[in-house]
Design a protein around this nucleic acid. Structure first.
Length: 479
RNA sequence: GCCGCUAUCGUCUAGGGGACUAGGACGCCGGAUUCUCAGUCCGGAAACCGGGGUUCGAAUCCCCGUAGCGGUGCCA
């Protein structure tokens, strides 16, 4: 193949993604590589893609970037799908496997080869590295003869490739600094940056929304698309997420994955709201938003440019707000689902569970906090020794508990409306401080000094068990 | 090294030349809710990375510096 005819370098025209706003009916993709649990950073990318698709009446493609066979185990892929399903982020196409499209990638490589846009370079990667060390500030251009070695795509020697980023504006890269991109390894396997470009083209992707760490890959993908004669999508590169220590979020951080969030008792809707606000804000300072509102208001162009720190404390607060807004029915359902999965299973007593959830709802910030609050209603008190010492081992406790017991015994209608006035009457008559009566009662009933309101606690437990527990505590006090 | 991105309270952010005495939220501190914890309500402290420009005027625009981050693979 004579070099002079087929091997002319592409002209140094400026290449750029054309649009600066999201178009109607966008086609987006979430394209994770299956390295294990879905990271919150990945979850946010998925969410932003999903919001753009749902807002614009578009479609979302789920594509698994599984060309690294070692990491792409079925378990890892299942984890990603599981996480997305839990987050309730649905997709319209896929999951598609990038590895399964290898033939198509090879086909496109052959096209570029025969069109002269690409060539075989027999130079070993070690030699290329050496060359680059000796020639800093220059892009590597391969030998371009023969029919073996890696396949490289010709890059222009001059001009710039500019990425018209939806979030950052135009970002220019000088062509002469880029190496001729390897698009297939010496064994013929296509390389990631090539496969991505082919897939995005074939799948009709109109906006690529992904992490910042891909920004410098983008000019490469743009060159591939240009050589392939395709129209590039628009790009939006999201700033990375950091942990509380300011470092890039990694598996070492607590609650770094969607599965950990789920185990932590967070609601998917709260996670979506929180994640949406990590990197994006509303002009009118609205913080709490339903998913429908998120879909309506989210604009990828309004996403910030700087890295954000994932702060679980704010998520906790937000989750509490979502939890309190649930109907009792939904609250119970969420609690049961959580206990069945993360705890030892939810108690079978449905009616009592409803009553218990009602009193826990105003207190808990996460589903994980519910059970410790309502456990007393289903199991014998779990004694907290320090609570016993602090509350029970004081002067006059036995007397106050005994008189409370007498008052409670006289009550037939075992509900807050009757319990409260009766005990308050006792307090007033004996001039006892509320805490000096209610805390011992609480310890007797629950074993600890922390519980929902004492009248609620008594009511939910029920008359007989409550009286029994107070009697038991009294008996113990008197020995 | 080279290329690129970024920089407002501790954290997430609003702001895009005069409306800034820089707003909101989490967290923190204080108070209230005459039962604990939580929740809720009220109040408070808390920021424009540094230096130069441009301009009558800069948190906002430009340049330089600094710092952080990403990339620089025949990884994805």
């Amino acid at each position: 193949m004579p070099r002079s005819t087929a091997l002319a370098r592409p002209p140094a025209v400026e290449t750029c993604a054309p649009m600066s706003t999201v178009r109607d009916s966008p086609v987006v993709r979430f394209a994770p590589s299956p390295t294990g649990a879905l990271h919150v950073g990945g979850a946010r990318s998925a969410l932003y893609n999903w919001l753009v698709a749902r807002n614009g009446g578009g479609r979302m493609v789920l594509r698994i970037e599984d060309t690294d066979l070692e990491r792409s185990t079925p378990e890892n892929i299942a984890q990603i799908i599981d996480a997305l399903e839990w987050l309730e982020l649905d997709w319209d196409d896929g999951p598609l496997s990038q590895a399964a499209r290898r033939e198509r990638h090879v086909e496109r490589i052959d096209e570029l080869l025969s069109a002269g846009h690409a060539y075989y370079d027999p130079t070993s990667s070690e030699r290329v590295r050496e060359w680059k060390r000796e020639h800093p500030g220059r892009g590597y251009r391969g030998a371009g003869n023969g029919g073996d070695g890696a396949v490289r795509l010709r890059f222009p020697d001059a001009g710039t490739t500019v990425v018209e980023d939806l979030i950052r504006g135009p970002v220019a890269f000088e062509n002469r600094l880029s190496d001729d991109l390897v698009i297939a390894r010496a064994d013929g396997s296509p390389v990631y940056n090539f496969a991505v470009a082919v897939d995005d083209l074939d799948m009709g992707i109109t906006e690529v929304i992904r992490g910042d760490d891909h920004l410098s890959n983008t000019p490469k993908q743009l060159r591939v698309i240009e050589a392939l004669g395709g129209t590039p999508p628009s790009y939006a590169h999201l700033p990375l997420l950091h942990g509380p220590d300011g470092k890039k979020l990694s598996k070492r951080h607590a609650s770094a994955s969607v599965q950990e969030l789920r185990a932590g008792g967070y609601l998917p809707a709260a996670v979506r709201n929180y994640l949406a606000l990590l990197g994006w804000g509303t002009e009118d300072d609205t913080t709490l938003m339903s998913t429908a509102e998120l879909v309506r208001r989210f604009r990828i162009e309004a996403v910030g440019r700087s890295a954000a720190v994932f702060d679980e404390r704010k998520l906790r607060w937000m989750n509490g707000r979502f939890l309190r807004e649930l109907s009792l029915e939904d609250y119970v359902q969420a609690t049961v689902g959580y206990l069945d999965r993360e705890g030892g299973g939810a108690p079978a007593e449905g009616e009592r569970l409803g009553a218990a959830c009602r009193i826990a709802q105003e207190k808990a910030q996460t589903l994980a906090e519910v059970w410790p609050l309502i456990r007393f209603a289903f199991e014998p008190p779990v004694e907290d020794p320090s609570a016993w010492v602090k509350v029970m081992e004081r002067d006059g406790v036995a007397e106050r508990l005994a008189e409370s017991l007498a008052v409670l015994r006289a009550i037939d209608t075992w509900e807050v409306a009757a319990l409260e006035p009766a005990l308050e009457e006792l307090l007033a008559r004996r001039e006892w401080k509320p805490g000096s009566v209610y805390q011992p009662l609480r310890v007797a009933i629950t074993g600890t000094s922390v519980s929902p309101g004492i009248f609620d606690t008594l009511e939910v437990l029920g008359r007989e068990p409550a009286l029994l527990r107070i009697e038991a505590a009294l008996a113990r006090l008197r020995t």
